[in-house]
């Protein structure tokens, strides 16, 4: 049996008419950062709640470090660190009190595992007597991570940890995760930010409770089979609607100040230009571009729609 940290087999969960998870199976290797990317309501949180023993699956099974999340929930709670999507620490307790409280509940002390959280905690230590409710978003998130790590978990489950956090803090946060990975902690993290996906070792794209693909970020991008062009024009809306009528285009999505258009194979720059000129759009800026994770995700989503 391969040495997996997390093993998920045919997991399903429905809430009334909604299929939150639909026959999900995948494995996460030991001490890797595994990213789960998907839009809101795609089932990420349900999956995490099952893994952390907060939710019972309807069918299927999941193990973490070899322990069944349903049967061995007591051990699961000892070896898992969970950071819910919503800040769930005590607003009216100080930074230090929050940390000490969770340390005690896990039967440990701040001192005992200080090494593990040192890099993170040191940044919020100057504010240790401040109430958690008065911290900024980035500091809240660092405190939550410290609390999730204080009992030296083997697996870290992070549900959208960077949502609502500024760009600098996000970058810092991912650097911290990389360091934790070196300490043999498996990290499974969900995020709505596509740019963060490329920082993971493996990425699973999830939509409507189904896993669309699991690959390394590089492979996901390599698997993108269509020629991709980045096009810009002053009247972006007109450009987009025009491109969507183009029979040779597979998809057209807006990315900031340009439009990414994926074309059918063998279609090239020339055809696009002449089509646009026919439609009265002259002098468009057009260049080939390497697909990013978002392009791939959009592409995969299109496939499932058909």
């Amino acid at each position: 049996m391969p040495d997996f940290s997390i093993d998920i087999q045919n997991l399903s969960k429905t809430f009334g008419p909604v299929k939150a998870l639909d026959d999900v199976s995948f494995q996460v290797e030991k001490s890797e950062i595994f990213g789960l990317i998907g839009p809101d309501g795609s089932g990420k949180t349900s999956l995490f709640r099952i893994l952390t023993s907060l939710l019972l699956p309807d069918s299927g099974m999941a193990t973490m470090e070899g322990y069944d999340v349903v049967k061995s929930y007591k051990i699961i709670r000892q070896i898992t660190g969970y950071m819910p999507g919503r800040f769930s620490l005590y607003y009216d307790l100080t930074v230090e009190e929050n940390l000490a409280f969770f340390a005690t509940i896990f039967g440990t002390t701040i001192k005992e595992n200080y090494d593990l959280i040192k890099d993170i905690y040191i940044q919020i230590e100057p504010f240790k007597n401040r109430r958690a409710g008065n911290l900024s978003g980035g500091m809240k998130q660092k405190l939550a991570l410290s609390c999730a790590l204080i009992h030296k978990p083997k697996v870290l489950v992070l549900d959208e940890p960077t949502t609502g956090v500024d760009a600098v803090s996000r970058k810092e946060f991912w650097e911290m995760l990389k360091k934790l990975k070196q300490q043999d902690i498996t990290i499974i993290v969900s995020t709505p930010y596509m740019d963060e996906a490329s920082l993971c070792d493996h990425v699973a794209l999830i939509q409507k409770g189904k896993i669309l693909s699991i690959e390394t970020p590089a492979n996901i991008r390599n698997a993108f089979s269509h020629p991709l062009y980045k096009i810009a024009y002053p009247d972006m809306y007109r450009l987009l609607t025009t491109l969507r009528t183009f029979s040779e285009a597979v998809s057209a999505h807006r990315f900031g100040d340009s439009i990414h258009v994926a074309l059918k194979t063998r279609t090239g720059e020339k055809e696009v230009r002449s089509f646009l000129e026919e439609q009265g759009l002259k002098d468009v800026a057009l260049e080939p571009v390497r697909p990013n994770i978002e392009d791939c995700f959009m592409d995969l989503m299109n496939d499932t729609h058909d």
């Binding site: 952390t52 907060l54 007591k74 709670r77 819910p84 919503r86 769930s88 005590y90 607003y91």
Partner: peptide, 13 residues
């Protein structure tokens, strides 16, 4: 309501 129970529930308490 505050969601703090979520964090308590994942502990071995």
């Amino acid at each position: 309501e505050m969601g703090t129970i979520e964090q308590i529930n994942v502990t071995p308490i």
